[in-house]
Write a protein that binds this DNA or RNA. Structure first.
Lengths: 246, 246
DNA sequence: GAGTGGTCTAGACCACTGG
DNA sequence: CAGTGGTCTAGACCACTCC
């Protein structure tokens, strides 16, 4: 099959402008000339350096983004991706502890928290009748200053009276334990790659079409009661999932 | 903050050519005017229909691809994505059974199978000394004819004498059970989003920069011995991970 | 061989960020 | 307000697929 042979050679030796640019920039990062969270030079500058157009340059940047080597902040520029956080969704999530164990600096911001009429899908997760009242807490989480996670927590209000008056900036896990004597038990989670929904991309300052890892967790307590569920949208280059069953 | 207000309004009401095209094509799919694995009209045709350039049109197609609504085959065109396969990596993987349970048609192709000197990383996974001989089986898997998975299996040869002479097109799980009386026990898996490596993109006929879900599984048998590990590269729009611990 | 997607050029204007 | 990224135009040639 000469056709396939030719295709194969081409795919091996193909040296398009885009791949050349990718290799050059990847080289800067590997050799440490650019490090974590450093900003790349402006697109017009780079396209000049590589003697090409912005369109072509942006194609290359998009490929490096897809590989998780760089990321962008809406209208601010391109940055070198820091190492991924190793995350086991089956463990009781304690974001701050997890980050610190890996030598990273965590931070949490509460966007808002309210009692709402639960959307049908959420109530189904919580095993409640549709439109039941639920607590909704929306937060974003940072690693080393970079916003990596937009999360909506939905709580069964029966188990957490007056929790909206508490300080929701710290760990919910801890709050559950100290204030309500509720501990996480079994977890179920689902995960699929998509893009950020509008509220998430706004909060994280990413382009609203950029890819994300969407993780749903349904959490039970020590009595196997469903106590809450999380809808998590992660920057997809921030995560390394690692699951080991005990 | 007038700045933020303006930004917010813009982001809500923004109706760029790209988003308009996305909505139009998404509408075709939602209304069933295009269904699973249908090919979209040619790019030049579409760009004419939307009175725009191919660059802009391709931007829109790229966004729909990121959402998992459409996919492309290298130089063949754009197609409507079929529903995702629900996959629990903690369960003993039986690809064919899993697909059939979900009403899909599975297929497997063996690319090659050989005894090789194990790369260091693989030997570490298998708890073998570096460069130990291992069996390497490379396969691709299809759902309803669409190649969705490129996988490299690495087997500890001590447990599977002469397995390379067997028919490797069917389930390894079954082969292990019937021929070697070995059954899967505990599993560990890691997962991270990246892009396809060259051999995978070639085998699956995807652009070599396109995003993929990279899943590593390390499998133990009923005696908790590590028997094999899999390096799986999935089309990222083909999967819906769902993990429930027993 | 016709038509397709993959790549690329050489510009332009706008909306936003940051000093 | 200068500079940036986001968006868009109107073309072009090449390598490949499919008939």
């Amino acid at each position: 099959m000469l056709h396939n042979e030719a295709a194969f050679r081409a795919s091996l030796s193909r040296q398009t402008a885009v791949t050349a640019i990718c290799q050059a920039i990847a080289g800067w990062i590997e050799r440490g000339e650019l490090t974590y969270n450093d900003r790349l030079p402006a697109e017009r500058l780079l396209s000049g350096q590589f003697a090409t157009t912005r369109i072509t340059l942006r194609e290359a940047l998009g490929q490096l983004e897809a590989r998780g080597m760089i990321y962008r902040e809406e209208r601010r520029g391109w940055f070198v991706s820091p190492p991924r956080i190793v995350y086991n969704p089956l463990q009781r999530s304690h974001f701050h502890a997890m980050a610190r164990e890996q030598g990273r600096k965590p931070a949490t911001e509460v966007l808002d928290a309210a009692k709402i009429s639960g959307p049908a899908a959420i109530c189904a997760h919580l095993a409640l009748p549709a439109h039941s009242p639920v607590f909704c807490i929306r937060r974003i989480r940072r690693i080393d200053g970079r916003a990596v996670l937009y999360v909506e927590h939905y709580l069964n209000p029966a188990y957490f009276p007056a929790i909206l008056q508490e300080d929701l900036t710290s760990s919910l896990t801890e709050l559950y334990a100290t204030r309500y004597a509720i501990h996480y038990g079994k977890v179920r989670f689902a995960m699929l790659p998509t893009t950020f929904p509008a509220p998430a991309s706004q909060a994280l300052k990413v382009a609203d079409n950029s890819p994300a890892l969407f993780i749903t967790r349904i959490n039970r307590d020590q009595y196997a009661r469903i106590i809450d569920c999380d809808l998590e949208y992660w920057r997809y280059d921030a995560l390394h999932i690692d699951v080991e069953v005990e």
